[in-house]
Amino acid sequence: MKDERTPVIETRNLSIGYLLKGRKQKVVHEALNLRLYAGEVTCLLGLNGAGKSTLLRTLCGFQKPLSGTVFLQSRPLESFTQSDFALTVGVVLTEKTNAGGITAYELVSLGRHPYTGFFGRLRKEDHRVIRNSLEAVGIAHKAQNRVAELSDGEKQKVMIAKTLAQECPIILLDEPTAFLDVTSRIETMGLLRKLAVEQQKAILLSTHDMDMAIQMGDCFWLLDKHRSLACGAPEDLILQGTFGTFFEKEGIHFDETTGKLNTAIPLDRVGVEGDFTTSYWVGNALLRNGFRPSSVGREYLSVFCHSSSELRIAYPSGGEQIVRSVFELIQAIKTKRNDE
């Protein structure tokens, strides 16, 4: 099926990398034909050294492409002046800032920089945009707090609000969830999803947080040093087996049934069926104990989850047993394995 939508970022035959001494080039990736769409969260994944930062820096305009073209809203990147670019792409970086001494409001007001005059005086309209941006990320109640007084998660929200105050259609984020605790990670990703859907922003972020990306990303760009880039919905990439090939290496395996990387995929199959939540967590416990959760079958042990306190074990020999908790279930299965 051909995609009829117009991408906000499109690259044609883009080659990225660095210029070395003596006019030599270090090509990190070549022949990149990427498309970034409005209303979607796109996640850029890859191991360290795969070229995530190089790609992001190129799209942020911090470094020039070696060859090929980047189109922003169908306009080639070279034709953008720095101030045009500031109105089109907003960035959230891992760069350490020195902004602890200004308020959240003042930081977000820096996003109005491209719109204000020589002395940076804020007009009524600017104040309105700043207030709306603070509200959109849910940090309006801390507007007058100094940035140093905010938690890491709140700081990240303020940085995102800054890009909203920039009023640009594209937001690029470099590892926005690194250094954040679990709830802040979910909040930040949830916020980015909300902004993509409600404000039709095109959002591209690099991340190492695979679980969160699988949960929240509409589209994945997978990067690897020795392969060409793969893109698609995370589920498609997993089901096609592409996902595994990007992350598997000696001793690390990608488990397609769970979407998790593991040191080894156990082969000892145990069938699981029944109540969705219960069977999910039964699967989790089985994996940890070296079993591979699968669909039920006659030739191996199966678990039927009627409820969280009623789990029926069906043995391949024909016997049955009811247990009352996941803990008991694991004990029973382990005993059975040791007997054999």
């Binding site: 911090f62 720095q82 670019f85 960035v91 970086l93 760069e95 996003g111 920089h113 491209p114």
Partner: peptide
């Protein structure tokens, strides 16, 4: 980098 992105 942030400053450059803001048009400085």
């Amino acid at each position: 980098m942030y400053a450059a992105n803001l048009g400085v």
